[in-house]
Design a protein around this nucleic acid. Structure first.
Lengths: 125, 125
DNA sequence: CTAAAGTCTGACGTCAGTGTCAGAGTCCAC
DNA sequence: GTGGACTCTGACACTGACGTCAGACTTTAG
């Protein structure tokens, strides 16, 4: 498929898709004309890119880890993942867990604010 | 206290503290000399700023929500929080929950990668 | 065949949250 | 009172992940 379709199917802008390619995270084939040609697997790849980007992993890391992922129906299986990368990924995993905790703290804070507000509304109906 | 002490006590750089002020999130008193003078409550305020920044709230929103927070020992209570802000905060709450889900998805992906890797190591010891 | 729609590269803009540096003024312990 | 530590403002730099625009080329529907 061409870039427009991939963009529509993933919800990711064409600009972003080109950026992903520039960063080595995607490598579509090219037609004679220079048009990018993406395979079906690009949809899953883009989905993973978004997930890892949202988790704060740098593009370089994502570019390294994506080749480790082989699609098996809906599950992902890593094959040739070098040791040093695995160590780094374990660090990232820790960072993500910490981030989750922080977000939960933030959400709790918002909850307390919103809750005490509704409590005040109850007091002055 | 002056900015150096607040920086040490919060682990936040002086540059960042000045930026927070510029964005209206902090409003320290000033000495005759122009030196910033922070109260004890600034420590908690900075802690909340970090939490909400980490959660992706924009500085403008944080500047609006901080005055809603009145310290009650270790709990926070909102007082005069305008309706429209509350609506917006509820949206942010949703966004944060979504972000947590995304992070968990990313962590699961990393787990599958790391797990299948150790499985491969077991297969070829 | 033609016009409209799609795509290309390249470059500059943006935004948040700082880092860093310069040059000048201030504080405080001795 | 002095010297070293601290603080001030202002400005420019930087990073990441894109947005946006220009100008040229390609594809596709009719």
């Amino acid at each position: 498929m061409k870039i427009g379709e991939l963009s529509r199917r993933t919800g990711v802008s064409q600009r972003a898709l080109r950026y992903y390619e520039q960063q080595g995270m995607l490598a579509p084939h090219r037609r004679e004309s220079g048009y990018r040609e993406y395979g079906e697997d690009a949809v899953g790849a883009v989905r993973r890119i978004r997930t890892l980007l949202a988790a704060g992993l740098p593009t370089r890391t994502i570019a390294e880890v994506l080749p480790c992922i082989v699609e098996v129906s809906d599950e992902d299986v890593a094959s040739t993942c070098p040791d040093d990368l695995a160590v780094y990924l374990a660090d990232e995993r820790t960072r993500i867990s910490d981030a989750i905790t922080e977000l939960q703290t933030a959400r709790d804070l918002l909850d307390r604010i919103l809750e005490s507000r509704s409590a005040a509304a109850d007091a002055h109906p």
